[in-house]
Amino acid sequence: MTALAPAPAPPGAPETAPARRPGRSRLGRIMQHGGWFVAPFLVFYGVFLVWPLVSGLWYSLNETNLAGINTEFIGLDNYREALNDDQLWDSLGNTLTFTAMLTPLIVAVAFGLALLAHNIKHGKWFWRLAFFAPFLLPSAVLADLWRWLYEPDYGLFNNALNERVPWLLEGDWAMFSMVLATLWWTVGFSFLLYLAALQAIPDHLYEAAALDGAGPWQRMWHITVPMVRNITGLIVVLQILASLQVFDQIFLINEGGPNNETRPVVQYIIQQGFTGYRIGYASALSYIVFVLIVAVTLVRLWLVRKRTDEKGETR
């Protein structure tokens, strides 16, 4: 989403500078105001972000293949094909289902774990480490581990339950299993954010509330939850953006199966572009997903702004 960031030219510089130094060029003035410090970043930004974005758009208007040979300009044909491509919408639906299932779970579980680790008396370091450690695993390790846990006959889960639960064998179960594995894997990061937020709540709030006769639940609902609201917002945004890009663990555990019922849209794009050599079509798909992600982000920004505005009025 960095693409949405405004061009990193120092804001305001062109308006204030001309009056003071009328003799210098615009570029010279920018360089004067720290441009050289930004330049290395700008080069990378241009080469690895702006340029691929632009060339991706160009690819999507061509029947571009992986080798870049025999290319043909076809206008909007790729987009037309994509809009009628059921597989795109199916896989996009899977990604959205995954996001909708995972995000609330992460928020709830991370908050719960943070409360536990914050309030526990003994061995704090151990709980922090235990909850955060899975986040450090590479996705390949995670996938191998959980594939074995979910194994129908020899897996730990089915052995413990003494039942053959179709963890990865049926569509709905498989999606749930992916969410569960991902929750275990990534909850540590949100947990850490919540823990920091909890530690930043001043004790005197709780003391005052206790003096006024508030019980533990009231203190939680009226002090803790509102005090970590900003962090909750941050976690929700980060989680949505990360989940919309989900790919590796699902691909590695189950290749998006069974019957493509967990295949995320990123996997479909890769299949079109790299398995099927059709970079042009894959670029068009990417742009459609890109627009959707931007839309989600904008809606989210708009909601936040609206809420803060309302708050401002009531005060």
Binding site: R147, Y150, E151, P152, D153, Y154, R164, P258
Partner: peptide, 9 residues
């Protein structure tokens, strides 16, 4: 049994 690790089996 689908989903089985073949070497494990």
């Amino acid at each position: 049994i689908p989903g089985q690790d073949l070497v494990g089996y």
